[in-house]
C-alpha cells in the first residue's frame, strides 16, 4: 500500500533523513521507532507532503505521490495525527471533527462518520460543544484521532500518540488503535515507547539518526541487539 524508496529529506538543504526505505501493506500496523531527533516527525511530514524530498520516491496504492500537495494526499486517504495533537484550541470539539472531514472525499459522509467517531470516543460526545483547548491531554488525543478518522483515512499515521499521557490513557489509546486495526485500517505508528510499540505493531522499523538501523517482525526487532543500541544512541 505504501512504499517509500530511498527517501532523502532535510531542512534548508541539510539532509535529516538519509536514504530511508520502508513499506506497509494494506491492513498492516507498522511501528516506526526512534530516539529523540531520529527523524520520525520529519518522515511522517514528508509522507504528508509538508516538504518536498531532496530525492527518493513515495508510492501509495501503486500511485506515485511524491509530487502531490498535502491536500491531494489527504484526498487519497493518507492522514496524519500530528505530534502534540495540534487540535484547533478555539474551536469546539464538534467543529474540530467537522474540519477533519473537510476534504472533498469525506465531506459528504460527515454525519455518518461523526456517529462512528462518537461511538468510538463516548467522552467526546459529552464535550461536543466545548472548546478543544479546554480538554485534557488525553481527550485532546482522542479528538486528534477522531478528527483524522473524520477525514476517512485509508492509512492512519500517528506521531507519538502516547506522548505526555498517563499510563491509563496510553492503554486506552492503544486499545483504540488495536480496534481500528481490527476494523481493517492500515496504521503507521510512530513512537518512542519501545515495548509498547513492539507489542502492538506487526512489523517495526528503528530509525537512528535519519537511517533505518533495524527492520523486521516485531519479535525479531525486539531481540536484535542493534535495536537497544540505536535506541539509546550508543
Amino acid at each position: 500500500m505504501l512504499e517509500v524508496d530511498h527517501l532523502v529529506t532535510g531542512y534548508g538543504g541539510v539532509p535529516v533523513l538519509h536514504d530511508v526505505s520502508l513499506t506497509l501493506s494494506a491492513g498492516e500496523i507498522v511501528g516506526l521507532l526512534g530516539a529523540n531527533n531520529a527523524g520520525k516527525t520529519t518522515l511522517i511530514n514528508s509522507l504528508s507532503g509538508m516538504y518536498a524530498p531532496m530525492s527518493g520516491r513515495i508510492r501509495f496504492e501503486g500511485q506515485d505521490v511524491t509530487a502531490m500537495t498535502p491536500k491531494q494526499r489527504v484526498e487519497i486517504g493518507i492522514i496524519q495525527v500530528p505530534e502534540g495533537r495540534l487540535v484547533f484550541p478555539e474551536m469546539s470539539v464538534r467543529e474540530n471533527l467537522l474540519l477533519g472531514g473537510i476534504n472533498a472525499r469525506a465531506r459528504a459522509h460527515r454525519p455518518r462518520q461523526m456517529d462512528h467517531v462518537l461511538e468510538l470516543f463516548p467522552r467526546l460526545q459529552e464535550r461536543l460543544g466545548q472548546n478543544a483547548g479546554t480538554l485534557s491531554g488525553g481527550e485532546q488525543q482522542m479528538l486528534a484521532i477522531g478528527r483524522a478518522l473524520m477525514a476517512e483515512a485509508k492509512l492512519l499515521m500517528l506521531d507519538e500518540p502516547s506522548l505526555g499521557l498517563s499510563p491509563l490513557f496510553v492503554q486506552y489509546i492503544f486499545g483504540i488503535i488495536d480496534r481500528l486495526h481490527a476494523e481493517g485500517l492500515s496504521i503507521l505508528l510512530i513512537e518512542q515507547n519501545l515495548n509498547l510499540t513492539l507489542r502492538h505493531a506487526q512489523r517495526c522499523y528503528v530509525l537512528e539518526r535519519g537511517k533505518v538501523a533495524v527492520e523486521g517482525a516485531s519479535d525479531v526487532v525486539k531481540d536484535d541487539p542493534r535495536t537497544r543500541r540505536a535506541y539509546l544512541g550508543l
Partner: peptide, 15 residues
C-alpha cells in the same frame, strides 16, 4: 479559523 489557530494542522487535514 483553522488556518488562524494552527496552519500546520489545517494543512494536515487537507485545507
Amino acid at each position: 479559523r483553522a488556518v488562524h489557530q494552527n496552519a500546520h494542522a489545517a494543512a494536515l487535514m487537507g485545507v
